[in-house]
Design a protein around this nucleic acid. Structure first.
Lengths: 199, 199
DNA sequence: GTCTATACCCGGATAGAC
DNA sequence: GTCTATCCGGGTATAGAC
């Protein structure tokens, strides 16, 4: 009963944790990491600041929990399909979805810039995230070349960098100009890349 | 003598101001606006915090001074040439130059993300900057269409958005991965756009 | 033009009661 | 598990002397 049941102290604590994490996501996306305070998060979730620190020993720890949970939730459903030319259309779906969750876009835009400083607590997280994102893209493009869909002289690394840049840059621009049609922009990007590289 | 000479109190104050602004640029680019402190800037420039406030009445005022001066200095030499297809190669030159001044890239990457919050003191500055950048790009592309260099069905707005996104996204990525070859990536972007849109 | 001193506020983290 | 109280550090901005 106490080991795997949904009731009992564990279930309650786990629920609290999730509640805290999603509240922290909101606060960090609105005010950044440095700008958002533990007191603010605590009060929104109905706790004192000390009460919040019972669940997460430090602000840094809470930040990493937010980042890791979201990364897992946001990407897991897509990972399996990220192969061949399908990768490009998948990215279109990602921005389509992102355009419906401004908080997430704000979170990643704000924090990825803030964490460019090497001593930021999330620096390693984003560095690794860029690395793995790039590796996935490179893999998909190499598959497309081997499948004869792209010309053999295509440079997978360069395209991966460019595509990642477009995704990040569009989302930042979109924060300032919500009327911007991100999926349409991605379409144009894909068409242009294909115009040059299609076999 | 007192009106236009390089000596006297005005020249000294002006020099101080420039010294402060360039120091503030360093600090804000390393630690962001919220993260950088007036005390830190003051101490680097050899002043007390109160002494610094004699030159700039508030931290917000100093931030805007930094932003406006740099914007003017960084873009002025290029503005005149930003016409027709030349615009694209000009952007290549801009990133080539930016790759030699990491401080500037950090400043714009960090602050443009931080200032996406509508109540940030630099929000209007960046909003206006995006607007004018986009307008310039749109103008250049329209010229190219009229000159018969690009196909008539080209969408100038969409290309302007995409190109701006690439510039911003590349620079952010470059902060995490300094080996990234930004000019080469821009070249690839230009070639791809031309492959699809050249007349 | 620059200083010291200070007012005032806010942050994260800890101690210890309940 | 949650609280109150507190420590300690840091921030901006102001007052007033030099």
């Amino acid at each position: 009963m106490s080991s795997a049941g949904q009731r009992g102290p564990y279930a309650k604590s786990a629920k609290r944790r999730e509640e805290i994490i999603s509240t922290a996501l909101q606060v960090f996306s609105e005010q950044g990491f440095q700008g958002g305070s533990m007191r603010e998060i605590a009060s929104r979730v109905g706790l004192s600041q000390a009460g919040l620190l019972h669940h997460f020993k430090s602000k840094d720890e809470l930040l990493l929990a937010v980042l890791e949970l979201r990364d897992q939730m946001d990407w897991a459903p897509y990972r399996a399909q990220a192969h061949g030319l399908n990768y490009l259309t998948l990215m279109r779906k990602v921005v389509e979805h992102n355009a419906t969750v401004p908080s997430l876009v704000q979170l990643y835009s704000r924090l990825s810039a803030e964490a460019a400083a090497p001593d930021h607590p999330a620096h390693q997280f984003f560095k690794e995230r860029y690395r793995s994102t790039r590796a996935e893209a490179v893999g998909a493009i190499q598959e497309s070349i081997q499948a004869g869909e792209l010309r053999p002289d295509t440079d997978p690394e360069a395209i991966a960098e460019l595509f990642t840049a477009v995704m990040d840059g569009l989302q930042l621009q979109w924060l300032y100009q919500p009327a911007l049609n991100m999926p349409q922009a991605v379409d144009l990007m894909i068409e242009s890349l294909l115009a040059k590289h299609k076999a």
